[in-house]
Amino acid sequence: MNNNAIELAHEVFAKANVCSSWQRPVSIGAIIWQQLLKTPVAMISFWIIFTLVLISLLSFLGLAITPYAFDQTSADILQGPSATHLMGTDELGRDLLSRIIYGSRLSISIGLITALTAFIIGTTYGAIAGFCGGKIDSLLMRGVDIAYSLPDLLVMILIGVLVGRGTQGILIALGLVSWMGTARLVRAELLQLQHEEFIDAAKTAGQNSVWIILKHLLPNAVGPIIVAVTFAVPSAILSESTLSFIGLGLSPPECSWGTLALDGWHSLRTHPHLIFFPSLFIFITVLSFNLFGDALRDAFDPKSRNL
């Protein structure tokens, strides 16, 4: 009994602390940024992501940063890595490094945009369900069940037919399937936080619902949100290759990391470079996103700041 009271007191005190910290004149963004600057891992992963984005932007502008054109064929087919072709060549004698760099422009942008879509739609949907609860929650969650159940492939083929090939089609298709997980996570977190004392306090203080969600609820659910969003990146990069397969994605000879991996995996035992290098790039990208996500989560957590 006594213990419980102490616990409760501790908790309320801690929450009050958190709340008061939001009201400081220094903006939350600045605090987080300062926090990130202090963590070397965050900075390394940030710079890797930055470089990758830069490379993909450059190839969007058509600047020649690759040793060869991505579709330039040659007689040197299926060569292993060498001085002339750092990552070897494929079945048509095209330079793999150039193709990977060219492919980054689609893969990186798809990864980022899908993650963003998953974040915005998923968080909004989940927040409404979790905050309102009751009938609305029930209705919205049955909507998620329906969206989960519909056969993805069929939906994607249809989008391909309706929208035609090209980036919009890919984005719509991937956006449509990526938000449900985030929505369910956010909803669960909010249902749990709903009845914590500090929320009741905010409610009785007459604060506006949107304000409560944005300022009090979401920051406390930031951990799972970041995990879900960083996971949307690799799954979008890889799913894009499936889309190419059903004719929704890229028009050959264009390529992405996903299609390179899909085309290369049968050569695992004969020409491993065809699967190794595309996978390596996906791996590095995903690792950077995860590490950066971790650092971001830590920066959001007021108590781990002094660790």
Binding site: F231, P234, S235, L238, S241, G258, A261, L262, W265, L268, R269, I275, S279, I282, F283, T285, V286, L287, N290, L291, D294
Partner: peptide
């Protein structure tokens, strides 16, 4: 973290092929 990243950044057909190999 590296294990986790491997688990998600490799497509499952590659993981399968590696395990079989």
């Amino acid at each position: 973290m590296i294990k986790v990243t491997l688990g998600i950044s490799l497509p499952s057909f590659v993981i399968g092929a590696l395990l079989i190999f």
